[in-house]
Design a protein around this nucleic acid. Structure first.
Lengths: 139, 139
DNA sequence: GTGAAATTGACAATCGTTCTCAACAGCACC
DNA sequence: GGTGCTGTTGAGAACGATTGTCAATTTCAC
């Protein structure tokens, strides 16, 4: 086992957690840092990165990579997946017991153990789709 | 629409394609470049990046991000997913009509259109698991 | 063969992320 | 309320992957 990682609670980490929870979407560390700065915080960029990594490790945030960036979002602690609008970033949390089972079965069938999986669906949400259609028929 | 992108066939691009097809695993552009250099090619790193991006765009290679790196692998052109050993990189291509359907249904249920999805399963392949268990019980 | 245009390779530039390190702050103990 | 140990912070440098630049080269239609 690794060391139990004593984790102190600090103002900065709390601030990062709050800022993250204030957003419904996946945000980058950079963007979160900027918005915190804009609200008067003097938090450092490195601290935001560290806090987000800690939150993700503790299961209080979900992380995903998109376009070479690490994005974070405050999430429920239970295992789940995401449906993400690729235009506005709106996110819906999904439960998918069937997919979990499928992943486990497929892994086992090929002799793989300790399966972990990445299942995310990207699309255009209704609003963004409507907006785009309006623009398209207008253009 | 963007321009039809005239694509010339060059020795370098062919070399990159061959090098990629010679690997069963997902490899990074850097690693591919190194191995090509090691075999005597004088191909440039930027060229490898460009060739891989072109292959991925043409559907001749699949790309995924892992640990902040872009990894590529020569794949069949039909849509599929991957079961990847997180230790040795061994990869199994999966077809999963059920998951496709699920993704489409879930997206539609939430008003999302043009669903695209990322479904990859990571695990330990039988060999790597056995190896680790042997080491564990020995240690 | 000729010419226009895409491609190449070396290198610089960019961008996100992590590291370094001295100053600081949380927490357990007195 | 002090005191000390140790984790944490913030600024900037460092890092690594990727992309841009640009002159020289190569491809391809003619």
């Amino acid at each position: 086992m690794t060391a139990p990682a004593p984790r102190r609670s600090t103002k900065q980490r709390e601030a990062v957690r709050e800022a993250l929870e204030a957003s419904d979407e996946f945000v980058s560390a950079q963007a979160l840092h900027q918005s915190m700065r804009a609200e008067g915080s003097t938090v450092g960029l490195a601290t935001v990165y560290r806090a987000l990594a800690a939150l993700a490790e503790d299961g209080e945030a979900d992380a995903l990579q998109s376009a070479g960036e690490l994005l974070y979002r405050a999430c429920t602690k239970t295992h789940h997946h995401h449906l993400i609008c690729r235009s506005c970033g709106r996110t819906v949390e999904l439960e998918a017991a069937a997919v979990e089972r499928w992943a486990g079965q497929v892994a086992a069938a090929h002799g793989f153990v300790e399966p972990d999986h990445v299942v995310d669906i990207f699309g255009l949400c209704a609003e963004c789709a409507a907006e785009r259609d309006a623009r398209r028929s207008a253009g």
